[in-house]
Amino acid sequence: MTSNRLKFTASMYAMMSISFWGVSFVSTKAVLGILDPYSLLVIRFGIGALFLFLLLLMQRYSLLVSIKYIPHLMILGILGVFVHQLLQATALLTIDASSAGWLISFSPIFTVILSILFLHEKMSIMKSIGMVLAITGVILVTTTRSGQSFQLSMNIGFLLMILSTLNWAVYSVLLKSLKIPYPPIVVTFYMCLLGLILTTPLIIRNRGWETLSLLNHLEWAHLLFLGVFVSGIAYWYWAKALEILEASKVSMFLYLEPIATLIAAVLLLNEKVFLISVVGGIIIIIGVIIVNGQLVPMLFSSLKKKRP
Rank of each mutant, 00 (worst) to 15 (best):
M1T: 14
S3K: 13
S3T: 15
T9P: 05
A10G: 05
S11Y: 03
S11V: 09
S11H: 02
M12E: 09
A14I: 03
W21D: 07
V23G: 02
S24R: 03
S24P: 01
V26T: 10
G33W: 08
Y38G: 03
I43M: 10
R44C: 08
G46D: 01
G46T: 06
G48H: 01
F51M: 01
L56P: 05
L57D: 09
M58S: 15
Q59A: 14
L73Y: 11
I78L: 15
G80W: 00
F82H: 03
H84K: 08
Q85Y: 00
L86N: 09
L87T: 07
A89Q: 04
A89N: 12
A91W: 01
L93R: 13
A97H: 06
S98H: 03
S98K: 00
F106L: 10
P108Q: 09
I109Y: 06
T111L: 03
T111K: 10
V112G: 05
L114C: 10
S115N: 15
L117N: 10
L117V: 15
L117F: 13
H120A: 07
M126Q: 14
M126G: 10
K127D: 13
G130K: 01
V132R: 05
L133Y: 03
A134I: 08
T142R: 00
Q148Y: 04
S153E: 15
S153M: 02
M154L: 15
L159C: 09
M161V: 10
S164Y: 11
S164G: 15
W168V: 12
A169V: 09
A169H: 01
Y182M: 08
Y182I: 10
F189I: 08
F189P: 01
M191Q: 14
C192S: 15
C192M: 14
I197E: 06
P201Y: 11
R205A: 15
W209L: 15
N216M: 08
N216E: 07
L218K: 14
W220P: 10
L223I: 11
L226F: 12
F229G: 04
V230E: 11
G232M: 00
W238S: 01
A241K: 01
I244H: 01
A247L: 05
A247S: 14
M252K: 10
L254P: 00
P258L: 01
L262Y: 02
I263F: 07
L267Q: 11
L268D: 03
L268H: 03
V273P: 06
F274S: 11
I276R: 03
S277V: 05
G281C: 07
I286Q: 12
I286C: 13
V288D: 09
N292V: 07
Q294R: 05
P297M: 03
M298R: 08
L303M: 14
R307S: 15
